[in-house]
Design a protein around this nucleic acid. Structure first.
Lengths: 352, 352
DNA sequence: TGCAATTTTGTAAGCGCTTACATCGGAGGA
DNA sequence: TCCTCCGATGTAAGCGCTTACAAAATTGCA
């Protein structure tokens, strides 16, 4: 097996990457060092001598080198990417959570993949699958309404996850959020304490959204305890929009006076504000003609006439804490499942 | 150079990837074929026989295989990732553009990296750099207010980009949007036609936001043409919030009657709604005491008292068209720079 | 001054995939 | 029947990086 001819015929293998940007190898060449040293200069600066380091940095700068994440990911089995699945960007609640998430994560060098489920478990699954392909190291999900397949997939990939916007120590998944039933029980009690006994509800859709289900439950249980009736036909459920709020109010206020509700609990501020604007148009006085409450404390809620009785949760903080929890899980994969309860704040205003 | 001993001592090289999820190689092994065939079965199904294909799919399913994007990216120099940089998620305008973007892109198998610049060029640059590291194939940016470095970086990486939310055929970058000056000129004319001559402006911050600058210019030029004065101390600029809108209105309405404006042009609906709510609190009649207009046509703008005169652009469509344009640029790298002008719609309501 | 301990740098394998090229086995034409 | 052609499959290189281990350079200390 002596070396006779040229052992490697000049097959001229592919040259796919055009003249595109520089590689670590080229930086190494320009700096006159090995690729290992360049890699270390960037990832473990203190394992490289001062002189060498500045020589390498200069070369990198000169070539305008930007490291290739795919190469890094393949070699190190780390991507520094995290994923977040939210219902929709079209809602400032979730947008603000994402903001908190990004602020909590980027100082640690993580980039965020964002997916919207539009309240559909299957869509969420698709998003998660795409994220796993891209090697996300962890995933944050809003709520718990996802198919089992999704959680099984996560487990199979050993990808940690955190559920945000809910607090549920009974769950085998880490959660960061609050008790939706509890805060709606509080809102309900506020109405009861103001002496109301005839209730109606205007709520957003509940299917595929256990948070709304929890809110409804909180209201129902509290009313039941107080032995206050809640006629089922006065529980109006539809889109969580201004329009549905307005339409629902008109419907409720068209009822015969004997059964007309004196207190209306809305599933969020948007519904309540829609109702309030309809009340104004109908010439009704709030809270004289009826009391109303919302949830979220959107910016406009303190400017309505009258200002809206509501409650708020710091959604930026929810995102921020979810980020922290994710970082902890990433650091210690076998830590026990954590739960963090945040406290919503009741905002007592004139609409009750 | 004869082969004497074992040429490759059992060094037992690293075994980094734990027992993590399956690789294409394992799928190949289970199906009893080469890795090349597995790859083809997924990427070029028609280059593989029917029987083989189903055998491979079965094996993949059995192992719960999810392809590794890093490996694919490295081998194919394609990532199927695109990036989008928006000022902030905290604004439904941009959130809706992102929604349009995702809807336009995901049918084509692209995933989206999202970055927020918070109206800061440097922050945008950081985001873009991170995206380039991750090998995005193209980037969509809101507006044109970015440092030159950013565009140079993009050019160096041969990464196509599209600017959204503006239309400017004079720019050497593709744009999808509308003329901010033009629509504000129209809004201004609406006031003029209603007979107003004494104007004030309530606008969001203009630095680092050429769109707001364009809007202001549109107003100023139109007023100048009509020889209507615009005292500089009645151009109020601050945060684009309800609060600033409300505060500004109070300030304007506290002016001596002789100089008090009869028409107020706001840079967006939020400012106008803030002003409107303050007017209500002050017991002022709109449009009797003053006329006011906004921009965006937010959901609530038709429910204010009175409903707000405004204009709207279909932001979902902006995102959608930006996606299409990006796809075209991706398909044909050397296509000439395109510009798409979308038309905002004037929404004439009772506040003028 | 000499040698071990320590730091700094180099060598080269391999991460999971795609793809140029080689090979193999019919099908079809002469 | 032989040969060509073509479709299906295999072989193996290499994408850009990290890192275990080896080698070299430097330091510390007796």
């Amino acid at each position: 097996m002596a070396a006779t001819d040229d052992p490697n015929p000049p097959k001229r293998r592919r040259r796919r990457t055009g003249q595109s940007s520089a590689s670590l190898g080229q930086v190494a060449e320009l700096a006159g060092v090995s690729t290992a040293t360049v890699s270390r200069a960037f990832n473990n600066p203190d394992r490289v001598s001062e002189a060498m380091r500045s020589r390498i940095f200069k070369a990198a700068e000169q070539l305008n080198w930007v490291p290739n994440a795919a190469g890094r990911a393949l070699a190190s089995a780390r991507t520094r990417i995290l994923g977040a699945v939210i219902p929709t960007l079209d809602n400032e609640i979730f947008a603000r959570q994402v903001l908190g998430l990004q602020d909590g994560l980027s100082p640690h060098g993580y980039t965020l993949f964002l997916g919207c489920s539009r309240y559909c478990g299957e869509a969420a699954l698709t998003e998660v699958r795409a994220m796993l392909e891209h090697g996300v190291e962890g995933i944050m999900l809003v709520g718990r309404d996802y198919p089992d397949t999704l959680f099984r997939l996560l487990r199979a990939h050993r990808t940690p996850h955190v559920l945000s916007y809910i607090y549920d120590p009974g769950l085998d998944h880490p959660t960061v959020g609050f008790r939706h039933d509890e805060i709606f029980a509080q809102l309900t009690r506020a109405h009861l304490e103001a002496g109301h006994r005839r209730f109606a509800l205007i709520f957003q859709n509940v299917e595929g959204n256990s948070r709304v289900a929890d809110r409804l439950r909180g209201v129902r249980e509290t009313l039941a305890e107080a032995a206050a009736p809640l006629p089922e036909d006065q529980v109006l459920i539809g889109e969580g929009t201004l329009q549905f709020g307005a339409d629902s109010l008109r419907r409720l206020m068209s009822l015969p006076e004997a059964v007309r509700p004196s207190a209306i609990i809305c599933g969020n501020d948007t519904l309540a504000i829609g109702a309030l604007s309809m009340a104004q148009r109908m010439g009704l006085q709030v809270p004289k003609d009826f009391a109303i409450s919302g949830f979220d404390n959107t910016a406009i809620s303190e400017m309505t006439a009258p200002p809206l009785y509501t409650a708020e949760i710091d959604n930026y903080l929810v995102g921020r804490e979810a980020a922290e929890m994710m970082l902890r899980r990433l650091k210690n994969r076998k830590a026990p499942v954590e739960h963090l309860e945040l406290q919503p704040r009741l905002i007592a205003r004139a609409s009750i």
